[in-house]
Amino acid sequence: MIVIGVILLTAILALWAITTGAIRFLGTDDDPEPGGGAGTTQPTVGSTAAVTEGDLEMQLRSVRPAGPGKLGVTLTVRNRTAAYVSFYGESQELVSPDEHTVSGAVGLTSLEPRESATVTVVFTVPADFRADELELHAAPGSPGRRIPLG
């Protein structure tokens, strides 16, 4: 009986830590390692003005290679509310001039009320893909706001 109680307590604490952002294993707050950007067309950072979408304020910091066929987009994300919210990496999109899109890798960053975090979203891009804009979404299915790149 004690073993079951310890397992349940551990599961509850792990769930709490993940949902409150105490443990962030699905996303990363670190910049990707430079180099190894073969096959990626490197856009430059265009607008660096913060945009507001839903409960989040997001500001583009950098775009850089994150390995072969990958781009890392670093953002500062701020929760504008008094409630807990999450930032979903897979909801973010790179947009080409002909409106083709590439979604970010799965990643979740939980933000406490009024908290800011630096988040890097990694995109796997086809060899011929040219990113023209970044479309940022506060939540899956939200309208999004576009930021021009280089």
Rank of each mutant, 00 (worst) to 15 (best):
T19K: 10
L8P: 05
P65E: 09
E53C: 04
L111V: 08
A138E: 06
G37S: 09
L60Y: 10
V3I: 14
G89N: 04
T124R: 12
M58W: 01
G107L: 03
G46V: 10
A38D: 15
F129D: 02
F25L: 04
P97Q: 03
V6I: 15
L75V: 08
G150L: 10
A66L: 00
L111K: 00
P65N: 03
A66Q: 01
E53W: 07
E90C: 05
M1W: 12
S110Q: 15
A11D: 09
K70M: 09
P68Q: 13
E135N: 14
L13Y: 13
G144E: 07
P65C: 05
G141M: 06
I147F: 11
L15H: 05
A131T: 09
L75P: 03
R80D: 00
G39V: 05
G89T: 08
V85F: 06
T74H: 08
G35P: 06
R145G: 02
R80C: 06
I23N: 05
E112R: 14
E135K: 15
V102N: 08
E112T: 12
D31T: 15
N79T: 01
R145A: 15
L15R: 03
T48P: 09
V77N: 00
R78I: 10
V85G: 02
P143T: 12
G35F: 11
G39H: 06
D55Q: 13
E135C: 12
N79R: 02
G72T: 01
V77Y: 00
V95G: 02
G104E: 08
A38K: 03
L71I: 04
L8W: 05
L8V: 15
S142K: 04
G107D: 02
G107N: 03
V6H: 10
D30W: 14
T19P: 00
T28G: 08
L26H: 04
D132H: 12
R64M: 11
T118N: 07
G5L: 13
Q92T: 01
P43A: 11
A50V: 07
T48L: 06
D132E: 14
T19V: 15
G37T: 11
N79C: 02
T20E: 06
V121N: 01
G89R: 00
G37R: 05
P97Y: 01
G89Q: 02
T81H: 00
R145F: 08
A131K: 08
S110Y: 12
P143M: 04
V122P: 00
E57R: 09
I18F: 12
R78P: 06
T120W: 00
R64E: 15
G46N: 09
S116V: 05
D55G: 08
T74E: 06
N79F: 01
E93Q: 14
A83C: 07
A66P: 06
T76Q: 07
P140Q: 07
V106F: 15
M1E: 13
A82I: 11
M1C: 08
V73K: 00
S91W: 00
S110M: 14
E112K: 12
L15G: 13
V63A: 07
T120K: 01
A83F: 14
L134G: 02
T81Q: 02
D31N: 14
S96L: 08
I18Y: 12
S142I: 09
V63C: 06
S86T: 12
P65M: 07
N79H: 03
I12R: 13
L15M: 08
G72V: 00
L71S: 04
A49E: 15
I147E: 13
V45L: 11
R146P: 11
